[in-house]
Design a protein around this nucleic acid. Structure first.
Lengths: 143, 143
DNA sequence: TAATTAATTGCAATTAAGTTGCAAATAGAA
DNA sequence: TTCTATTTGCAACTTAATTGCAATTAATTA
């Protein structure tokens, strides 16, 4: 799907070495419409070492290539950062939709979180909205 | 702090037996300004069995006495439900503030999530907004 | 192109989080 | 007081994630 060229460019831009492991993990994210857990990647790329996957996810997240997706599952999921995130500047607002039927979690890029009145004294930096319900796909193929 | 009477009333109202374990766990929630993890309760009430705590948290959550608080920590946290939640009707919208300094997570009861335009096809049921930043307390006693 | 080196990887071991099964104890109804 | 379904405690287990270290390798430089 995604050309290897753009994958390696991402790694270059974030100062990470272009190793086969990283390229294949990044490729998984690139080809996925939903957020991926460690287990998802382990299943998709059986030859990779568990620990290497954990460490790759951490360094990708540190570098702003992917971001952590919070859902009710309890296990960490990650998705590609859309815009230009770096180690120093992160997009600070995310909306995700978690489907109670298929259990997949999607980034809703199209909608953004409206401004809201945080109580005085709090310094808000990052906003994560998790919407739970039934996704488009599960809704349409309802029996 | 909170009188034992109201604690036992909560258990009664949700059809749970008034056992010493449940009363002390519910009391912890009642006295806490922030969401509590399994580990928090284990530390506060050393005499309680780990598994009993897990099961109590589950049944409280099932009955709508407490709700799961999602934050970036990865481990589950819970807080008392404000309004009248039952097994069948749950308050479906929560805003939480997670402090990156003290690592505590608070319920922001005062603010509610504005209506937003979910893409066509999605059926949204529940909304959880996590705001991350520096809390009131950490902000004021900044050195 | 070969040598160098710091980043990356793989493996083993460990910690932490959460679950399951089952027998003993007990809250609350009869 | 008796009875029974709920709750509890314990042991064992599963799953998620982390750490340390030696071996490997990507990318720089000679």
């Amino acid at each position: 799907m995604t050309d290897t060229n753009s994958i390696t460019t991402i790694l270059e831009n974030h100062g990470l070495r272009k190793t086969p492991n990283r390229i294949s993990i990044l490729n998984e994210f690139s080809n996925s419409k939903h957020a991926l857990s460690h287990a998802d990647i382990e299943n998709a790329l059986k030859e990779l070492d568990r620990v290497t996957i954990y460490r790759t996810l951490s360094s990708f997240a540190d570098q702003g290539i992917i971001h952590k997706v919070l859902d009710e599952s309890g296990t960490a999921k990650y998705a590609l950062c859309q815009s230009e995130c770096t180690e120093h500047k992160h997009e600070d607002s995310h909306v995700h939709f978690s489907c109670t039927k298929c259990k997949l979690t999607f980034c809703l890029e199209s909608i953004s979180i409206p401004m809201l009145q945080i109580p005085k004294g709090y310094a808000a930096k990052e906003f994560n909205l998790l919407v739970q319900g039934v996704c488009k796909n599960c809704n349409t193929k309802r029996i």
